[in-house]
Amino acid sequence: MAVSGRVGVLSWWRTPTARRYLFGYTLLAPAVLYVLLLVGVPFLFSLYLAMSDASVGAPVARFVGLENFQAALQSTAFYKALGNTLFFTVGAGILKGLLGTTLAFLLLRPFVGRKVVRALVVIPFTLPIAVSVLGWKWMFDSQFSVVNWALSRLWLIGTYGSPDWPVWLGQPNLALMSVMFVNVWRGFPFSAIVLLAGLTSVPPEIVEAAKVDGASFLQRFRLVIVPMIAPILFVGAAFDTVFTLSDLSIVYLLTNGGPDGATEILPTLAYNTGIRAGALGRGAAISLFLFPLLLPAMILLLRTLRRREH
């Protein structure tokens, strides 16, 4: 556009393009402002809080530099929570991937009742999380657990009070397995449906062609299907990682980090430190340790999304 001098700028403002831009950015403003004010600013504020000694009782905070981060790095509870978080996320992620893949292949080809089965199998993902966790808390009850009833009737364990009676949420290793199990239970339908969406987007002719060329099922999966659906797998995995890393409700409601820190993860530690104990600065610092863990997932997603655009 040949814009020169003041007159040119003024007349540019009257062009249809300029009016479209003005209209467009006006429409965008409310959403952008809301997100900036309530996600962007709080995020920066949490950086500030993490470097202050702010607490619920004393609103005027003092700058303390990296003290809160150092304090976290010097406490054994933090390392325990970090280790649990990593073990929990990776372990549950692998299980969800395996179960989701199996389920996706079972649901891939048409069969009688496919829609009904699909609707039933995704129930764990669609129930509000607090609701289903309460159900599991009852099923893992120390005395009236239906799981234990079944195991006891199958003679795999003794009766209530016998030494091999598992207290799912009360024994350190079992408790960690139980919270992981509930996370897997909730997440496997999501993996399956995401994978299914990917698999159905692969043109069948390509798979058939590979079959004609003599590729085995595993070869077809690894060399033809996976590369084609890789972007979807990335996006699905990124979302699941973020959901899992940042979810507090499963652990909070089932064990609240117990017994004796065996199931403590960074979100519960951040909540208990920041809100329950009132040390806002400490809590903010602990929750920020999640950020480097989340970053790879976010970068992966960003790259996948941007690649599509170009």
């Binding site: 997100v35 996600v39 507090l248 909540y271 997932a297 997603l301 960003l302």
Partner: peptide
């Protein structure tokens, strides 16, 4: 993409400043 990415900033990082 920027707006969508904020969907991924989890509650666990935001809840203390939002308090």
């Amino acid at each position: 993409i920027g707006i969508f990415m904020t969907y991924l900033v989890p509650a666990i990082i935001l809840f203390i400043p939002l308090a």
